[in-house]
């Protein structure tokens, strides 16, 4: 609207209708490069995958796409591995993101404090996030290696038996969560720190004059004002964690016994190992639909929170 009214003041605009259409076509023109880019990297692959998901395209068909009338989708619905992976991925995303929000908030609050060396600390905290996922996944795999990793070396020195951390489903899952939390907590902390810094200090001071304890200040002032930032973190992180691939592939390759396999990994396996591109497209789109539902859920919850605040 601003854009349009801006052009209404121009001398060449002889009447409102003309200036309106002029402003509209110009704004479309200016948006065109971004829209074109989105179309190429987002809309086109999506359409292509949609098309592919209704075709058989594998080694059996000689890698030629043959329409199979939704057979991929029917297979998906009854594919135990897909739903198992969906649950595993959901569990992974839920637990990791939950932990990251709690730890990230604590870290952000700590980094927000005034004190010597604050700048250095902030940089140090960000390091895990700056590390390439593959490198850090290899690092964690080595740390939990049986029996040569540092943790098992420590256990052996203490006279305890070494543990197969990455060959037992329960501990492997924990290691994958640990690695993800270690890497992305700084990202969450950084976003929340920005949120904290947007809160004027005199609000905090007004609360102190009311006699509020640090806990009361956090609960009654800081957290309510951070809700938009927490929602943003949630959205970013849930979407990212649901699509987790590189960390899992390097750290566990989905094992042991598929217990840490994520949906993205399953889609990848279908395409690159089983060379079944048609079904892989269905898996990918199934995951995409799940993610859409989940994102909508996050948004609804956030809105509910804000509305609740408005009522009080």
């Amino acid at each position: 609207m601003n854009f349009i009214s801006h052009f209404q003041g121009q001398p060449f605009a002889t009447n409102k209708v003309e200036s309106y259409s002029r402003g509209k076509s110009l704004s479309l023109l200016l948006l065109a490069p971004a829209l074109a880019l989105l179309a190429i990297v987002f809309v086109w692959p999506l359409l292509r995958y949609g098309w592919l998901s209704f075709h058989a395209d594998s080694v059996i068909t000689g890698l030629v796409a043959i329409p199979n009338g939704g057979a991929n989708w029917i297979r998906l619905l009854s594919d135990g591995r897909f739903w198992q992976d969906a649950l595993q991925t959901l569990r992974f995303a839920g637990v990791s993101v939950g932990l990251e929000l709690v730890l990230g908030l604590a870290l952000a609050l700590a980094l927000h404090q005034r004190g010597p060396g604050r700048g250095v600390l902030r940089v140090l905290c960000l390091l895990p996030w700056a590390l390439p996922t593959t490198v850090m996944a290899l690092g964690w795999r080595w740390i939990f290696n049986d029996p040569h990793g540092p943790i098992n070396a420590l256990l052996l020195q203490l006279g305890l038996p070494s543990q197969g951390f990455l060959s037992t489903p329960s501990t492997t899952w924990l290691v994958s969560v640990l690695a993800d939390v270690w890497k992305t907590t700084p990202f969450v902390a950084l976003l929340l720190l920005a949120g904290l810094q947007s809160i004027p200090t005199d609000l905090e001071e007004a609360m102190r004059l009311e006699g509020a304890s640090p806990w009361q200040r956090l609960r009654r002032l800081t957290l309510p004002l951070l809700i938009p930032y927490l929602g943003l973190c949630c959205l970013f992180r849930v979407a990212q964690a649901m699509g987790v691939f590189d960390l899992i592939q390097v750290l566990t390759d989905g094992g042991p016994a598929g217990s840490t396999e994520s949906l993205a990994l399953y889609a990848y396996l279908n395409a690159m190992r089983f060379l079944d591109f048609g079904y892989s497209a269905s898996v990918m789109l199934g995951m995409f639909l799940l993610l859409l539902v989940l994102s909508a859920l996050v948004l609804v919850v956030q809105r509910r929170f804000q509305q609740q605040q408005e009522l009080t």
Binding site: D202, L203, E205, L209, T312
Partner: peptide, 22 residues
């Protein structure tokens, strides 16, 4: 004494009203 125990009423330059509350 801690600011909360001084019984001080203060009007800040920015007014420092809590934006999320009525």
């Amino acid at each position: 004494l801690d600011p909360g125990r001084r019984q001080v009423g203060m009007v800040f330059q920015s007014y420092a009203l809590y934006p999320h509350l009525s």
